[in-house]
Design a protein around this nucleic acid. Sequence first.
DNA 1: TTTAGCACTCTCGGGTGTCAAGTGCTAATC
DNA 2: GATTAGCACTTGACACCCGAGAGTGCTAAA
Lengths: 355, 355
Amino acid sequence: MPGENRDLSERKKLILKAIIDTHINMGEPVGSKYLTQYKQIAYSSATIRNEMAELEEMGYLEQPHTSAGRVPSQLGYRFYVDQLMQQYRLTSAEIGELNKLLKMKAAEVNRILDRATKLMSMLTNYTGVAVRRSPARQTVSRFDVMYVSPRSFILVMLTGSGAVKTRHIHLGFDVNRDVLEKLAVTLNDCVSGMEMEQITLPVILEMQQRLEGHESLINPIIKAVYETVNEPDEGELIFDGVNNLLNYPEFSDIDRVRDMLELFDNKEDLLDLLSGAEGDRTNVYIGSENEVEVMRSSSLIFRTVKSGGRTVGVIGVIGPRRMDYSKVVTMVDYLSGSIGHMMEADLIEGKKDDS
Amino acid sequence: MPGENRDLSERKKLILKAIIDTHINMGEPVGSKYLTQYKQIAYSSATIRNEMAELEEMGYLEQPHTSAGRVPSQLGYRFYVDQLMQQYRLTSAEIGELNKLLKMKAAEVNRILDRATKLMSMLTNYTGVAVRRSPARQTVSRFDVMYVSPRSFILVMLTGSGAVKTRHIHLGFDVNRDVLEKLAVTLNDCVSGMEMEQITLPVILEMQQRLEGHESLINPIIKAVYETVNEPDEGELIFDGVNNLLNYPEFSDIDRVRDMLELFDNKEDLLDLLSGAEGDRTNVYIGSENEVEVMRSSSLIFRTVKSGGRTVGVIGVIGPRRMDYSKVVTMVDYLSGSIGHMMEADLIEGKKDDS
DNA sequence: TTTAGCACTCTCGGGTGTCAAGTGCTAATC
DNA sequence: GATTAGCACTTGACACCCGAGAGTGCTAAA
């Protein structure tokens, strides 16, 4: 039964860590002889070979073929991420880039995530991904109505997380501007800030009463609100730097490239995957740990971005299974926190600048 | 001097067309012997060989190596597209799919282009692309203002092409709802429907007069309008089916894949390229005809989508240079026209449905 | 002008031999 | 008992060769 780590001796951990670190850097199977050059490992290659054989038996290492060195298995990476790897320290150049992003003026949700994605891809040399997302439980905090023509208007909704959504509404009858004005006031009075469950029949009846003579307006509106709030496939996928991955030897095999591209072609699946992020921690999916078969040779590190208690998006990095987990985790941590705080500040009070 | 086509005999045209048609289908260099099987070409392989040698001399054909058949050159494809290829007839299945798209309910710009892109990728087995775009000369046809906090509000603009844009505006001072209300009315009265050049000093002065006591509101607003109208990098790139291309043998070379991915990674460049579409005709870029070096092994067929005289986007298809030009051109033509008309109908008067 | 024939060129796939890396195992050593 | 040196073995990578097949250009004949 592979995977029991209680009896991993310190020496085994040392060797395992050295193998994984080396392999992450070099990208090639690492052999026993190579490890003897580390001064922390003061054993002969033969001893190391024995330990490696046992580590392989336990499931932490794999051998591509008899006469190659060892490569970490999925389980090995998992153990490494959970217990072995050490904290990465961002370089000052990296911190500089990140802070430049955070000081950006147009502090709107859209721009930030775009830019963060690009930045992650550049700083890590992997692929940056993000989801701009209406969280599962969205509310509308403010409504507005914009007249277009006698039979159509646009419903503008400011969501709890600060995004603006719009809907064209077409009617089978005419309405005038006064009615629309009243509609907006009514909506703001009756349903702003509510979750969908709170919009019950009494609330709807009250609205219809206030709009007497135009009750039939309410139904399409409620439907539009409902769709906006609950739309599960709502959420826009952003990614940048897919090309970076082609520079890693694991993607010199065309089939791997195919897998990877499939990942980015099935935007809905990737969206689902990212949306499944557990909150308040950085998620690390190694290879096929998650159910997505097509990811077997890549890993995904991601984290939700929260602002004012609400999930406003997800950011992450996709790379080969042999990824610099330490660095990427640190960076995703840092960015998700900072972006969240920033948007929070922006939402709560208008900043002091004039545009 | 290659390229003069005045002296292309009918027989040469026949042979050239046969070669290109065959190569588009088969994907491999085509030899003289193979062509003798066509009954329209009643010559021996030797004769065909002579003609092929001349066509190569003229620059329409290329030889990968001595003992291979001929392959169309970029110039050859160009001649084919301009003069040789025959009209493709959409199959009934294809027409069915396309009409299904066109009958879709949520007739909003966003959804249509997303779906059209996916559809093109599916029906052609190449990559569908689209740009959702505020045309270079955009106008704002209607304004609205949504109160957020004493020092910030959201400016909602309905553009001439039917898209909705929003801007958060932060202020250094407080304003109340009444002022914002007046602001919206003023904007609608004074600048709706105008091009930027028409918003001259007198217009601005009039607005400031109408908003007396709050003149300083005008500047940030004008700036926001200006940015919205003129924003050149505005325009969202959509694509679907990148993976399809990997199935073509020309992309079994990893370097070609790299080129292709680079194309999709540099979203701005691709956006520029697509935005350069000449109006009212379907543009065909073969290989490196356009300046983008990275496209040397692919082709791009695209066309603007116009609605009510305004450009609202671009749709197109990217495929290998050996593409089924005839089919793709037909499809892009059909789609761009239909989508345009549809959005037009939607804009001018709200349809008779109720949501 | 067309065609048959032929020598030539080039790619592709299979087969072979060599090299280097890395292993597992055994016996000697600390 | 743990460690290590030594050695035989396995395997992939690489270079090389060779024959088959496809397609060509050219020449001479029809």
